[in-house]
Design a protein around this nucleic acid. Sequence first.
DNA 1: CTCGTTGCAAACACTTTGCACTAAT
DNA 2: ATTAGTGCAAAGTGTTTGCAACGAG
Lengths: 142, 142
Amino acid sequence: MDSITTLLRNRGFKVTPQRLAIYKVLVNTRSHPSAEMIFNDLQPVYPTMSLATVYKTIEILQELGLVQRLNVGEDSFRYDAIVDTHPHIRCLGCGRVDDLEEVDSQEFVKSIDETTSYKITGQQFYFFGYCPVCQKQKKHQN
Amino acid sequence: MDSITTLLRNRGFKVTPQRLAIYKVLVNTRSHPSAEMIFNDLQPVYPTMSLATVYKTIEILQELGLVQRLNVGEDSFRYDAIVDTHPHIRCLGCGRVDDLEEVDSQEFVKSIDETTSYKITGQQFYFFGYCPVCQKQKKHQN
DNA sequence: CTCGTTGCAAACACTTTGCACTAAT
DNA sequence: ATTAGTGCAAAGTGTTTGCAACGAG
């Protein structure tokens, strides 16, 4: 199996508790945390861990193809352990970022691929709106 | 007509040569420049203009709905005077950013809108790949 | 003349880097 | 024992802000 442990070792990276912990946070959440959110999550368990370690680890995880980086229009990046390309949506009320996995974007990608002179290698789809909770709280302007 | 001059005045903003020049740069290009690119463009004509003015002006232009801000996965934002939402593609070889206007994304947006519990207010589609020039120059890894 | 704007520099926020100490192999 | 990684602080980027001098209305 290709566990994170094996993947790290195969590439000459050492397996440290910090790296495992950071990856675990990403695997166990759907909240698409930023580096700082991961850092805060781990504060209770790894009080001495630094933000720099989070950034350095995330970079390795991206290299290994275990994590993808999202740019949801905020000042900071967010990270997702689901590396398959799928659309994301950010709530303009509370800032939460959700997956939009149900939808098939293949046809859309295909139509782009057929009309552009570019050779397409990847894509990111970002939606913006208001989540159910914020809709009720009228945090949105109708 | 709703020229930039009128729009500025209507909202109590003053019409300055800097503001007109910055907007003109955006209207006359398809390169989706960053703030710094705009700044560099204007250096010969407005040698004393500061980057801060570019940023402040762009913010106003966004408020007026004359410009949209793009987040193409770089460290800096890019700006587009075509405010209608359309997909963009960035060349991973040379960094150029192009429009993908030919394609209709309505159906894709509609299918998302029908499956999500969010109230969607906007979206951004970003593609990545290699432009014709970089494909020839083999700047891409096959 | 008045009040918003410019341009400079300083402040900011997020991310990256340098380096001595520590820990994985 | 070796060599890479951690954690701290400092440096880097792009962007924003404060403020005195300036210019549009």
